[in-house]
């Protein structure tokens, strides 16, 4: 880039490349063993979470047994939803820069899994809300912004699914939409927060006593379980999307040959 000092542009990519190869060497063995590691880890952690949430964790004093839904709800809302959508945004950005259609499959997969977890979050939240708040749904800030998130990413999936798996143009457009949608999240959060919490009809959350250590431990297990589950589901989905892309390419090739 700078014509005056030819040494610096030489040095920079090599250092970056070194870092990249180092990262690749660290990540690649794990990535290659994903079909052994992820199902096993997910299974063990999910079982541990189930046992921990239903049996091991102490009963919450104020809310009773329903509070045990927290171990599903909180990790789904944080890791399952936001982390998936972060992966969608990052994969979309990489796709836009590299034009490698496989990243579009990763973005789609992460968005699908994120939508699944958003539905889980809303469902468990509503089921928890009925006995505690007395209603399934309230227009509380967090609930509302999660709902808006669900709308954005179902729209993304809808727009992407009307085009074929190898439609580069549609993939680029929806990648841009995914980026815009992800950057919209803070704005949605602020606006809905001010819209609701500064409003008179505010829902007052129960002020909880200090959380016991056992609960925190089970919550940690649940976080790990949901993380592994999310990664496994995304890996499954993105691999099947990439398979669909390759199948589609093969069919196009055959169609072309058939016509000639």
């Amino acid at each position: 880039m700078s014509a005056t000092s030819p040494d610096i542009p030489e040095a920079r990519p090599s250092r970056l490349q070194a870092l990249f190869t180092f990262l690749l060497r660290a990540v690649l063995p794990v990535y290659q063993r994903r079909w052994v590691l992820l199902p096993a880890l997910t299974g063990v952690m999910m079982m541990a979470m189930l046992v921990g949430a239903v049996l091991a964790a102490p009963r919450e004093v104020v809310e009773g047994d329903v509070q045990r839904l927290m171990y599903l709800h909180v990790p789904s809302a944080t890791i399952g939803t936001y982390f998936s959508f972060l992966i969608t945004a990052v994969a979309s950005a990489i796709f836009l820069m590299s034009r490698d259609i496989r990243w579009d499959a990763v973005a789609r997969a992460a968005a699908t899994v994120g939508v699944l977890f958003t539905i889980f979050t809303l469902a468990t939240g509503a089921i928890w809300g009925k006995p505690i708040w007395g209603v399934y749904w309230s227009w509380d800030a967090r609930l509302t912004s999660t709902l808006v998130l669900l709308l954005i990413y179902t729209a993304y999936l809808l727009a992407r699914s009307v085009a074929g798996p190898n439609d580069e143009q549609a993939a680029r457009y929806t990648a841009i939409f995914a980026l815009v949608g992800f950057l919209d999240i803070p704005l949605i959060h602020f606006s809905v927060d001010w819209w609701r919490t500064l409003h008179p009809q505010r829902i007052i959350f129960n002020t909880r006593p200090a959380v016991p250590n056992e609960m925190l431990f089970v919550l940690l297990v649940a976080f790990l379980a949901i993380t592994f589950l999310m990664l496994w589901l995304i890996a499954l989905r993105s691999d099947s999307e990439q398979l669909a892309q390759r199948t589609d390419r093969m069919r196009m090739y055959l169609d072309q040959r058939g016509n000639n």
Binding site: V54, L69, H73, A123, T124
Partner: peptide, 14 residues
């Protein structure tokens, strides 16, 4: 009892 039902429903949905 209600609470247990809700707990069950939540996990079942998941």
């Amino acid at each position: 009892e209600n609470a247990l039902e809700f707990l069950f429903a939540g996990f079942a949905v998941f």
